[in-house]
Nucleic acid binder design. Structure first.
Lengths: 176, 176
DNA sequence: TATTATCCGGAGTGAAGACTCCGAATGAGA
DNA sequence: TCTCATTCGGAGTCTTCACTCCGGATAATA
């Protein structure tokens, strides 16, 4: 792979993360090309389809999240680790496109990345439960639903913050 | 207004509720026309713009929700009234398009309808708080955010049900 | 029934956007 | 430096979709 090719690929991916993070699936490939400072042809050589481009972006982001989640799993305070990861997934802007992988027909790599992340969350959840910091009747399914639901909210950050607080309270052992 | 005109208008509106309820803003006007058993021209005569059609649908639905919410406000058990309304707003399928009114530039009538509903929810909330069934530090803002966030979740009904349960627990007085 | 204002249907228009194609440019090895 | 396989750029194609237009149909009224 030629050096300029690799550089362009990276710039396209970064631009895609920006565009889809802002506009969701409605973002156009032309806009991605413009922000990457690249022709449309270049975008489509690296990613033969818009779907493929979106997927690559999602995979990159999910992998990143899974890594930090796993790293936090080693931490001492299991409850804090769980809550921090929850917050990060909700607030990290490009996470908002994670749903695209679910709404559209998800392809192989995206599914794999999503599974890895989900397992990391499951691990944090059960550690939190064992530490007595998370209610024991909660399953990964609803935790995941709550995360993705909140991740798609646009609007006042402060309000979202309070909403997350309410949900985390609902996940505490006292709430059950 | 001629009788056939009124009948067609109603059928279009019903079809729109279906289509947008399923596909969101991505639903096409042609599909609406087809399901209404009507030509495209007819759709556009009654609603000069797709935006107008979406709005009319949203207004109709918001108004309906506001009515039931207000009716429930009279009920004896303030806590139950609040929770029921919360659930209804999350689960009623076409509610899922309520966000369209927020994402797009919302016009006069839609804003009015949304405001009415929001006030009805605010009323139920404060009654619930006075009855000691809802935590007093919760404001309408985050309650609304939680509702719309959950309303946009697609997928397993049972999981969503449990997620709603967690959130309602988080809104109980014990959780604060 | 006759008249007509109103309404209907759907082919047609224009814009937007995903994707293709190929001549020009360029990185890397001889 | 020279050569050429690789990559780039962006004009052009094709499809989709919102929206228009008007000849034909139809409800309401006398």
């Amino acid at each position: 792979m030629r050096s300029d090719a690799r550089a362009n690929r990276d710039r396209v991916l970064a631009a895609a993360e920006e565009v889809f993070g802002e506009a969701g699936g409605a973002g156009s490939t032309e806009e991605v090309a413009r922000r990457a400072g690249v022709g449309i042809g270049t975008v489509f050589r690296h990613f033969p389809t818009k779907q493929a481009l979106v997927e690559a972006t999602v995979v990159r982001h999910l992998t990143l999240l899974a890594d930090t989640a796993r790293a936090r799993g080693e931490a001492a305070d299991a409850g804090a680790a769980f809550r921090e990861t929850f917050r990060e997934m909700v607030f990290t802007a490009p996470a908002k496109i994670a749903l695209l992988a679910l709404l559209e027909v998800p392809a192989g790599e995206a599914v794999a990345a999503a599974t890895v992340l989900r397992e990391a969350v499951a691990d944090l959840l059960s550690r939190g439960q064992q530490a007595g910091e998370v209610r024991v009747d909660a399953t990964v399914s609803e935790v995941y639903v709550l995360i993705t639901a909140l991740a798609n909210v646009r609007g006042d950050r402060a309000v979202l913050e309070r909403a997350v607080g309410v949900v985390l309270d609902g996940l505490s052992p006292q709430a059950s």
